[in-house]
């Protein structure tokens, strides 16, 4: 085997593994959400399919795949078919830049535990999350239904607004790590995670990602009490499934990013790095589920108010303070690079 073949094989193995793990995790996150919500709400949750209901995701998948793939007669066919993919693919792609473990040595090579160590990884994530907005907007528009349209408009406005505060809350992270590469950002937190230096940025980022993955209290684009199902009202079968699973992949990916940016990524004592990364990421997923079990939903304009008039100015002020603090310190954060 030539050197490049080994490289390609390792790369393909990583790719396949991540793809498999992410999709399975997303399916089981749906199950976990139903179970955890059931515990919160004093009921049992899915418990019929397989032991403890553990095969429920499989049953759901079969159901979604065998359901009629319905396209409304007045819909814009191509865009209608394209939108679910536009929602799910960017979410999966984002995971490519997240380091989920310490670099290991296989066959004499130092293999970093991420698919692509882009030097602009953070920008790549922001760009992809902007593309994901198209899935919502196009899906809402192409359905040619008024509820979908309203959901699409809401989604568009919400995601764009919160992208801003999310991006701005990450600037201090870049300032501290002095790199856009996610591997470097994790390396910079080897001793102290950035949440200690940047609690405000962490909070803003956390609120923004809740809005990004359209979870309660920010599930306004699909508020079922108001817009039936929002932008995916007209979708059925696996196309709906793609929107649905895309959202859960988003939860995992955004949880992973929050771990990477603020909680020191895979760093942690005693346990293996991959375990630490998974634990932290799943803690975020649990947090989202917990919020859903606790909070009501904000109104569209209240959400905009929070994003533009509270979070964005705070994020900007936080950048100034961080810059001022770094300048006063003179030297920058120690980098373990």
């Amino acid at each position: 085997m030539t050197a490049s073949t080994v490289d390609i094989a390792l790369f393909a193995a990583k790719l396949g593994m991540i793809f498999f793990v992410i999709l399975t995790l997303a399916a089981y996150l749906v199950f976990a959400e139903r179970k955890v919500l059931a515990w919160i709400q004093d009921r049992k949750g899915p418990n019929r399919v397989g032991p403890l209901g553990l095969l429920q995701p499989l049953a759901d998948l079969i159901k979604l795949l065998t359901k009629e793939d319905f396209c409304p007669i007045a819909a814009d066919k191509w865009l209608f078919y394209l939108a679910p993919a536009m929602a799910a693919i960017p979410a999966i792609l984002t995971f490519a830049v997240i380091p989920f473990g310490a670099p290991v040595t296989i066959a004499g090579r130092r293999v970093p535990m991420l698919v692509a160590d882009l030097n602009v990884g953070l920008l790549f994530f922001l760009a992809l999350s902007s593309i994901a907005v198209y899935g919502v907007a196009i899906g809402g528009w192409a359905s040619n239904s008024k509820y979908s349209l309203l959901g699409g408009i809401r989604g568009l406005a919400q995601l764009i607004s919160y992208e801003l505060s999310m991006g701005l809350s990450l600037v201090p992270v870049v300032m501290l790590a002095r790199s856009f590469s996610l591997a470097d950002i994790v390396a910079a937190q080897a001793t102290i995670p950035f949440v200690v230096y940047q609690p405000l940025a962490f909070l803003i980022f956390l609120i923004s990602i809740t809005a990004e993955c359209k979870r309660i209290p920010f599930d306004i684009p699909e508020a079922e009490g108001e817009l039936v199902a929002g932008f995916h009202t007209e979708y059925s079968g696996m196309r709906f499934g793609l929107f649905f699973v895309g959202e859960y992949i988003n939860i995992i990916v955004l949880g992973g990013l929050a771990t990477t940016f603020f909680l020191g990524g895979w760093h942690g004592p005693f346990l293996a790095p991959v375990i630490w990364f998974s634990l932290k990421t799943l803690a975020f997923a649990f947090f989202f589920i917990w919020m859903r079990g606790t909070l009501p939903r904000l109104r569209y304009d209240q959400l905009m108010h929070l994003g533009w008039k509270v979070l964005t100015p705070l994020a900007l002020a936080n950048i100034l303070v961080t810059g001022w603090w770094l300048a006063l310190r003179g030297d920058m954060m120690p980098l373990s690079r």
Partner: peptide, 16 residues
């Protein structure tokens, strides 16, 4: 009322 405003848990508690 609570479910319409998004508070799902109250719904199930009240039905209990």
């Amino acid at each position: 009322h609570a479910l319409d405003i998004g508070a799902m848990t109250v719904f199930l508690y009240a039905f209990r």
